[in-house]
Nucleic acid binder design. Structure first.
Lengths: 412, 412
DNA sequence: TGTATTTGTTGTATGGATGAACTTATGCCT
DNA sequence: AGGCATAAGTTCATCCATACAACAAATACA
C-alpha cells in the first residue's frame, strides 16, 4: 500500500511500535492461544517486555485474556491470550456486476455482520449505485456500533482500475464507470479510515494464509486469477499484494495470445479474455449469454459431453496456460489460485493447462507449479477488504492505542 | 535479496542501526557534500545524534570530512561530509558470452580497478572458465588491497537461472552450464561475503538513480530489458530488484508471441527471443551470425535501407512491444530501460514499439510510458554487482562498524 | 570591534528494553 | 497433607540511544 517508506528517523517510540506490532501479530496469528511466556519465546522479547506490551494491547481491545484452560504440565499455568472477538472490526464493501455487498469481520476472522443486495449493475449509474451501497454500509455500521464494536476502517472493492494514491476510480469497463472519486458518493460517517482498491487485489488478500485468519497450509506467495466476464489478477508476495507503480499490477486479462485474434473490449486483439473470459467462452461453447456455470459444467460432465463445449473449455485452458506461463516467467511464482468461475471448470481444463505450463515455464524443471482453486470463494473481495483493514491494525497497533488514549483523555 | 524478514524483536541496538543507515544513506546519496547540520535537517534527527553517528561512520571508513569549503553565509561554516573514496569497495565479477570481467567501485561510485578478458564462452567448461575468472579476481583484489582498500563483498553475475537462496546456478543455456555452485570454483580468498546473481538483475541495479551513485533524474522503478542472443529482463521497484520466489523474475525472453511460431532453445514455440533475439533477428535481416550491431545499423541507416533488415527490425520492435505491453499490464511500471544491442536499434523500431504499447497497455491513457536506452551501457552487470555490495554496506553499516571494532579489539 | 548567526559539542533527562530477583500457581512425590 | 520442583507473571534496578538545552566555536556584517 505505502508507495515507499521515505527517510524517517527511528526514536524510542518507533521501537515500541515495532515490538507492539510484533506481539500483536504473534497473538493474532497464532493457531491456538498463547501465554505471555509463549509470546516471549516466539518473539525473542523478554517476558517482562511482553507483559507490558500485552497489557497495552488488552487496553486497546486488540487482545483478550481467555479463561485459564486445563493446565498441561508442571508450573504455574499461563493465561491464554487470543485476538479479542467483536471489539475492533474491519469493513469490506463491494460493487460487483451481480451484487452490492458489505461484510464485517472481527480480529478472530469471524464474520460479524453482512448485507448483500443482488442486482445487475452492468452499465449502471455510479451515483445511484454508490448511494445504495452507502445505505447498506450505514446499516451495517449502525448494527455493529450498537453491539459495541468499533470499525477500524473501510475498504471498497471495485472491478476496475483504481489509482492507489488518490483513491480515484479510473475506469471500470463492465460497470460503465469512469474517472470518479467514490469517497463522497457513499455518504459514510466521517472519522473511519476509508480506501478504495481493485476487486481482484482484495480478493487475493482474502486467500492469504496467515495468522488465525487462515490455516498454515495456505501459501503466502501466489498469483490469484479470477475468471468472470473480465479476468482479474493479483500478485501476492509474502502475503502482500504487489501493486506496481499505481496499484494496477496483475492485469492478466489482456495478455496477448494472438496479435491477430478477435477484438477485445480494451481495443486490442487476441487478449486472454477473448479465449478464457465468460462471454467469449460461452459463445464458443454455444451457450446463451445468460447461461450459468452449472449449465456449462452439465454440458461437459454428461455421459456424452458436448464437443463444442469441450473444445471451448480446452481452448480456454490452453489460453489461460499461456497467460499464466508468461506471468510466472515474468514474476516467478509457483502457486496459482483460481477464483470466479474457474474452480468449477478446472477439472475440465487442468490437463490442457498443465501441459502448457510444463512446456513454457522456463523454470519448470526446478519449481513445481501448483494450480489450485482459491480456498475462499464466497465473495472474496468483501473478506479481503475487511481483512486488509484488520491487518493494518495489527501491523500498526499504535494507531488504535492512541485512539483509546485520546478517547479516555477527552473525558477528564 | 532477503526472502522475507522474519519476526525479530527491536532492541536499542536495532534503533541505532536504523539511524546509522539513515545517516549513511543521506551522506552517500547526497549530490553535494552535506554538513552535520544539513544531515540533521534532512533526516529529522537532532544535531547531537547526527554528530555521534557520523563519528562512527568516519571511524568505519564510510564517510570522510572534506576540507572546509568556501563559506556561504553568516554563522560558523559546516564541515562538509562525503562518502570516503578508496576505502571500502565493492567487487563485481561477470562471466559473459564475450568476456570475463572484474570491476571494483568505491563509495563515491568511481571505478578503482577493472580487468576484462575477452573470449568466446559459448558452451565452455565451467571449471576452467571460473578458474580463469577467479585468477582475474585475485589479481584485482591484490591490487586493491595493496592500495589500502577493503573489499566489502563480491558479486558474480551469470547469464542464467541462479537460485537466490542457495547461490547455485541452475542453468545457463548459452554458456552450456548447468547445476553447479560457482563458489568453490573461483578460489576466492575467504572472509569476503560472496554471492551469485543473474546478470540481468545486476545490470538492472546499475541503472538505478540513487545516491551519489547516480543523478536524481534516473528513475527508481522500471523494467530493464537487455537484448543479445538471449533477452534478459529485470523488474526494479523503488530501486530494488523484484526477484520473485526464487529470484527468477523478469524472464521476458520467453513470453509467448505465437504459440505456433518458430521453435525456441527453451523447447517452446514463438518466444520473444525468436523475433527480437540476436540470432533470429540477424537471420531475418539476412546477416551472417557473426555480424555486428554496427553492420545491422549500417544496413538500416543508409540512403537506401535494406528492406529485409528494416522488416526484421520492425518485426522485432513489434514483438518487443507485445512482450513489454504484457509485462507492463502484469507488473504496472511506466519506464522501460533497454540495454544490450537495443539502444543502437531503438531509433529504427521505436515507432513500431510505441504503437503496440499505446494499443495494448490497459493503463496507457493514464500512465505515460517511457521507453529509453539504459543510461549505463558499459558492461552494466559488473557495475551493478559492485554497486549492490556497496548498497548493502550503506544499508547496514553496523556490519562494517563491528568489523572495525573487532579488528581493533583482536589486537589488545 | 561587537553582534548576530549558524555549527558542532557537552551534559542531563527520558523512554523503552533487559536481566535478575521475587511472587504466584500448579504438578508430583513422599 | 506437606514439601519440592517448575513454570508464569511481575517488580525493580540498569543500560542504551535519542531528545533537549545550554554552551563553545567560527564566520559575516555593521
Amino acid at each position: 500500500m505505502a508507495p515507499s517508506a521515505r527517510p524517517a528517523p527511528a526514536r524510542q517510540q518507533t521501537l515500541r511500535q515495532h515490538n507492539l506490532a510484533l506481539v500483536a501479530r504473534t497473538v493474532v496469528g497464532a493457531e491456538s492461544p498463547l501465554s505471555r511466556a509463549d509470546v516471549a519465546a516466539r518473539t525473542g522479547l523478554t517476558r517482562a517486555t511482553v507483559s507490558a506490551l500485552v497489557d497495552r494491547l488488552i487496553g486497546a481491545g486488540l487482545v483478550r485474556e481467555l479463561a485459564p484452560a486445563t493446565p498441561q504440565g508442571a508450573g504455574r499455568p499461563g493465561v491464554p491470550l487470543a485476538p479479542a472477538p467483536r471489539t475492533l472490526v474491519g469493513v469490506g464493501l463491494e460493487v460487483n456486476l451481480g451484487y452490492l455487498g458489505a461484510r464485517v469481520l472481527d480480529l478472530t476472522g469471524a464474520t460479524v455482520a453482512e448485507l448483500i443486495e443482488p442486482g445487475d449493475f452492468h452499465h449502471s449509474r455510479a451515483t445511484e449505485v454508490l448511494g445504495r451501497l452507502g445505505g447498506l454500509a450505514r446499516t451495517v455500521l449502525d448494527d455493529v456500533a450498537a453491539a459495541g464494536m468499533r470499525p477500524a476502517g473501510i475498504r471498497l472493492a471495485l472491478p476496475g482500475l483504481v489509482d492507489a494514491r488518490s483513491g480515484r476510480l479510473r475506469i471500470a469497463p463492465n460497470l460503465g464507470w469512469s474517472s470518479l472519486d467514490p469517497t463522497g458518493l457513499l455518504g459514510l460517517p466521517a472519522g473511519i479510515p476509508f480506501a478504495v482498491a481493485n476487486e481482484a487485489n482484495l480478493a487475493a488478500v482474502a486467500q492469504v494464509g496467515r495468522a488465525r485468519l487462515a490455516p498454515r497450509a495456505r501459501p503466502t506467495s501466489y498469483l490469484y486469477v479470477s475468471g468472470d466476464v473480465g479476468i482479474g489478477g493479483a500478485i501476492v508476495v509474502d502475503g502482500e499484494v504487489f501493486g506496481g507503480r499505481h496499484g494496477w499490477a496483475g492485469e492478466i486479462g489482456h495478455v496477448v495470445l494472438d496479435a491477430a485474434g478477435p477484438r477485445c473490449r480494451c481495443g486490442a486483439r487476441g487478449c486472454l479474455e477473448q479465449y478464457a473470459g465468460k462471454d467469449a467462452l460461452w459463445q464458443r461453447a454455444g451457450l446463451p449469454a445468460q447461461a450459468t456455470v452449472a449449465q456449462l459444467v452439465a454440458e461437459l460432465a454428461g455421459a456424452a459431453p458436448d464437443p463444442a463445449a469441450v473444445a471451448a473449455v480446452q481452448g480456454a485452458g490452453t489460453a489461460l496456460g499461456h497467460a499464466l506461463a508468461d506471468t510466472i516467467n515474468l514474476v516467478d511464482l509457483d502457486t496459482v489460485l483460481l477464483g470466479g468461475m474457474y474452480p468449477d471448470l478446472l477439472p475440465f481444463f487442468t490437463d490442457a493447462l498443465s501441459a502448457v505450463l510444463a512446456a513454457r515455464v522456463v523454470a519448470a524443471p526446478w519449481a513445481e507449479i501448483a494450480v489450485r482453486p482459491a480456498p475462499v470463494g464466497d465473495r472474496p473481495a468483501l473478506t479481503g477488504g475487511a481483512r486488509e483493514v484488520l491487518r493494518d491494525v495489527v501491523r500498526r497497533p499504535a494507531g488504535v492505542l492512541s485512539m483509546g488514549d485520546d478517547a479516555a483523555s477527552v473525558v477528564p
